[in-house]
Simulated assay, not measured.
Amino acid sequence: MFRFIQSYIADFLDLLFPSLCLGCKQTLSANEKVLCVACRIKLPETNHHEDPYNQNSLNKFAGKVPIRFVISFLYFSRGNLVQKLIHQIKYRGQKEAAKEIATWYGLKIKSESQLSDEIDVIIGVPLHKNRLQQRGYNQADWIAEGLAEALELPSRKDILVRKHFKESQTHKNRLERWENVSNVFAVAEGKQNELEGKRIALVDDVLTTGSTLEACAAELVKAGCKSVGIITIAATHR
């Protein structure tokens, strides 16, 4: 009886406040989430999971920190649908969209590659507590959760911490980005032993210069993990 009431209320709310496609703003049908079918098929997928050790991707980190693999789901470019999605995920409260899109990618990774066999735990790039309080959520944690559920792997929010509150990276070049995140991240006190020998998938929303992910990966490697791979929802064209 309770489930029936819940379903009835949900249907009623959908009539009053229908879910809209984050791309075209048209009403979503019952079997659509985040994007309508028309928008979803337009997503510029990278197919990185088919070649996760591609040197072009790994070159972002070459000579800086050892990275096992680098994959991104979608190509990000100014004004495209992916930029719109990332903006809404980061600044418009669409955390559930972050999880759903990550789930799509996780299922694709699981069915079309063997990459999940190289991962023990999934960790999102952390936000500083002040930023987390401002935004109310960390989109990287929601992405990590979606990937973890699809890949049937654990995700952890308590391993990495952001020690300092730094300004946005959005308009910085490569050197400025690195200087902005240098010595910002650390492995949480008492968690070092939990990383020993672990194969980590480090997760974020967008891969641009890689400086933030590089800084996080360096701390994980320092703590003794076996390997670090990188998964993001989007990446700029190389």
Rank of each mutant, 00 (worst) to 15 (best):
V161F: 03
K226S: 14
E179S: 12
Y75Q: 11
E118R: 10
E214N: 11
Q6N: 15
E152F: 07
T170V: 14
L220G: 04
E112D: 15
Q55M: 10
N80M: 05
K163F: 00
N31I: 06
Y75T: 13
G79A: 00
Q83A: 11
F165K: 10
Q139R: 03
L160V: 02
S116K: 13
A98E: 08
V181G: 01
S72K: 05
A215G: 00
L202H: 07
W142T: 01
G136R: 06
D204N: 06
F17R: 03
A218P: 02
H48M: 11
K84C: 04
E149C: 08
R68P: 04
C39P: 06
Q26F: 12
E189F: 01
F2I: 15
H164E: 13
I101K: 08
V70Y: 00
L127D: 06
Q55V: 11
K95D: 10
V203M: 03
A186N: 07
R40I: 04
N183E: 14
V206Q: 04
S111G: 10
A215S: 13
N80E: 05
A30D: 11
Y91C: 05
Q133C: 11
E96T: 10
T46N: 13
N193R: 13
E214T: 09
S57P: 08
R68C: 07
L160P: 01
Q83G: 02
F2S: 12
L153G: 03
G146S: 02
I89D: 06
S116N: 13
V228Y: 02
K226Y: 12
Q192D: 09
C36K: 00
F2G: 07
A235L: 07
L81A: 03
N54F: 12
L220Y: 08
C36S: 01
V184H: 01
E45W: 11
N80V: 01
L207W: 08
V184I: 02
T208Q: 08
K129I: 13
I230A: 08
S168E: 07
L28Q: 03
K222Q: 14
V184L: 00
H237V: 13
V37D: 10
I200F: 02
Q139I: 04
C39I: 00
A97M: 04
K25P: 00
